[in-house]
Nucleic acid binder design. Structure first.
Lengths: 298, 298
DNA sequence: TATATTCATGACTATTACTCATGCATTTGG
DNA sequence: CCAAATGCATGAGTAATAGTCATGAATATA
């Protein structure tokens, strides 16, 4: 039944629709912002395509034929559906634009989220969804637009661009420093040490950087999230090696004191990870903003 | 919710549909018989109209975004509906074309219908509907395309064009003529006369055309349909004044004998009546055919 | 590494949509 | 009844859209 018959143009269908509604080419032209001549031609075009007389020309007026009436009913309906389809797509594009972001848990909590208010103010119509993830994952699978990644320059299926290095420092609370005065770097190794499980080598690396220190590193407490390490350090439980990005507030307030820089030496960095293909404008804008936040210190 | 957002062109929607189906502009172009470049432009146009990215460009390929997927589903559906709408209109125009004809009852029975087979052979796909009507009526109201009218040049709301004059003759059966030999016109008036009620003046008019005839006209039998008059005349019941068009068969076979011509004098004619406005091609064709039949005598 | 493939885009051509002017047939108003 | 107004159709021409050809960039493949 359905054959390879070309669909008339939207212009033709709209002219027919308006002429059917008004039973007048002139009134239809007014409604459409065209000339009567234009409408007349389009309707004639449609009559030729359909192979039927759709309007009876009576005197100076027109009247729908039975064939015209039947077609008009269907065309009204079809055009209305199309309008709804397009309107909804446009509305979806305007109001439900979503940017999905992933980051390491503590980085998300302590660095990213407190700053997102600034980005949100720049883009009020953009909804944000933030995931915390510790390991690389399939960005496309989860529909993530941007991930802030720490580690090696290696995330299969993603495009990585460097964000910044990780600045590590040894910190301790003022209370701990009173009980364990530090005049040289090696004094730090006599303190209780707080360890991040996934970064167990950090104290070894620090130890290697101290001339004349023996090969022994104090055992201490172990934690699997930097946020826990931070809390323990603030409470005076021990000295910790932490990324400065995560403790900007504590350093500023004096809750933690920076004692010495640490060089990781593993070559790990912060990166921005994006799915293959071109970035959406929102994602591109977010990347620009993040870079600005990194270079702007409190 | 529905705003005055322009509907994209059919060309744009078809390119999007095909690209969504194939997830490839090149394959879509092949299916549509266009170039990749053309499809790329139309999809880009749609993305700009909608204000959303519909395809993610990945390497050398494309993948529908979520927004693209949603829109594709709706567009498939809407285009399918439109195709059906147009196909059905075209099919209706091809197979259900109908020509509605009206004529006087006896004229329809004895002249028109026996000849319609010829017209039907010329137009096999045209369905015919025949009404018998004795008086003028609203052609548009009944949806009648053509009426064969006998009478004055006066049918409100219809266009009349002359078809032919009515040829009237006095006829009698051979049996009646044996019982009532006719050597002069005036001898006819001594026969039993058959009267058509709606044409009661005809015998008077005939009588007036006979020099020296007295003012008296024989009463006789009256009938309200020419077909009854014809039947009565054939049975020898009396002499009748009949239109030749209605008794072509009887004159040819000798069932009725023509005795004398009759001049009506009222100026009545056969006309073709059509509704206001332009004739459909079928109606115009029918008119041409009828004129040919009138000028062609058996 | 060389070759093939696919999308994007500049420059250009072809086609469609539309305008302006006019004619014809009618409707309307005086 | 006649002049003016109205509305559809159509010729000639213009503007806008649809589409092609050629080319470049980025990738995928052998």
């Amino acid at each position: 039944m359905e054959r390879d018959i070309p669909i008339p143009s939207i212009s033709v269908l709209r002219c027919f629709e308006a002429a059917a509604k008004h039973q007048s080419f002139t009134a239809a032209a007014e409604e459409l912002g065209l000339t009567q001549s234009g409408v007349s031609r389009q309707v004639k075009e449609l009559e030729e395509q359909i192979g039927a007389t759709l309007f009876r020309r009576e005197g100076r007026g027109i009247r729908l034929t039975q064939a015209g009436k039947s077609l008009a009913d269907s065309v009204f309906s079809d055009l209305s559906r199309l309008r709804r389809t397009i309107s909804q797509a446009v509305a979806a594009g305007e109001t439900q634009e979503l940017l999905t972001i992933a980051a390491l848990p503590t980085f998300a909590t302590r660095w990213l989220v407190p700053r997102l208010k600034d980005f949100k103010e720049k883009r009020p119509n953009l909804d944000l969804m933030v995931y915390s993830r510790s390991e690389p994952f399939d960005l496309v699978e989860l529909g993530v637009d941007v991930a802030i990644h720490f580690g090696a320059n290696d995330w299969p299926g993603a495009k990585l661009s460097p964000l910044c290095p990780e600045d590590l420092v040894v910190v301790a609370s003022p209370a701990l420093l009173e009980a364990h005065p530090v005049t040289e770097k090696s004094d730090i190794l006599e303190m209780p040490l707080l360890h991040m499980t996934s970064r167990a080598h950090l104290w070894k690396a620090f130890h290697k950087g101290i001339p004349g220190a023996d090969g022994h590193v104090q055992m201490g407490s172990y934690f699997d999230q930097f946020s826990l390490v931070i809390a323990a350090a603030v409470s005076g439980m021990g000295a910790a090696i932490l990324p400065t990005y995560l403790i900007e507030t504590e350093l500023a307030s004096g809750a933690l004191v920076s004692l010495a820089p640490v060089r990781d030496g593993s070559g790990h960095n912060y990166y921005l990870a994006t799915p293959p293909g071109k970035l959406s404008p929102s994602a591109a804008e977010f990347l620009t903003w993040v870079r600005g936040q990194v270079s702007r210190r409190v």
